[in-house]
């Protein structure tokens, strides 16, 4: 299987569903799903590289931390990832090298306030990882 995401309706908010065959592609697909919620495309490759390390006590914590980091970059720094290399990825963390571009006037379809813990679930077995996270928009 290949990594995919889906954006699902929720009364007030938006639910992001991510499915992937392994942890590196899972974290990449989650980022791509978030960009889609913003109405952003990775676009041209950015000139800068950001190195990040996300860790947590559970896969759910890592996912929220990862999405929160991206929400901060996009919402506060107007910095958009255009590509990413994920390494040392597992259920409790990963490191990533993000190619990013910063735009003065970033055109976003909507504001994403946060990735929430409500209804958060990450289910993993040997061949598949599936997650649902509700984004407050």
């Amino acid at each position: 299987m290949r990594a995919v995401f889906r954006i699902l309706p929720h009364t007030s908010e938006i639910c992001l569903e991510v499915r992937a065959p392994d942890w590196p592609s899972f974290y990449r697909a989650a980022a791509q799903g978030l960009l889609a919620v913003y109405g952003l495309r990775p676009g041209r490759s950015g000139p800068k590289t950001l190195r990040l390390c996300c860790k947590g006590d559970s896969p759910e914590d890592v996912l929220v931390a990862w999405l929160s980091e991206l929400i901060y970059l996009i919402g506060a720094k107007r910095t958009v990832p255009s590509g990413m290399e994920v390494a040392e990825a597992g259920p409790l963390g990963f490191t990533a090298a993000l190619r990013v571009r910063t735009e003065k006037a970033l055109s976003l379809e909507r504001e994403v306030k946060a990735a929430t813990y409500h209804g958060l679930e990450v289910a993993a077995n040997r061949t598949r990882i599936m997650a649902r996270v509700i984004l407050d928009v």
Partner: peptide
């Protein structure tokens, strides 16, 4: 009231 996250709105 409507469905929120955690606490209802």
């Amino acid at each position: 009231a409507h469905w929120g996250y955690g606490m209802p709105v």
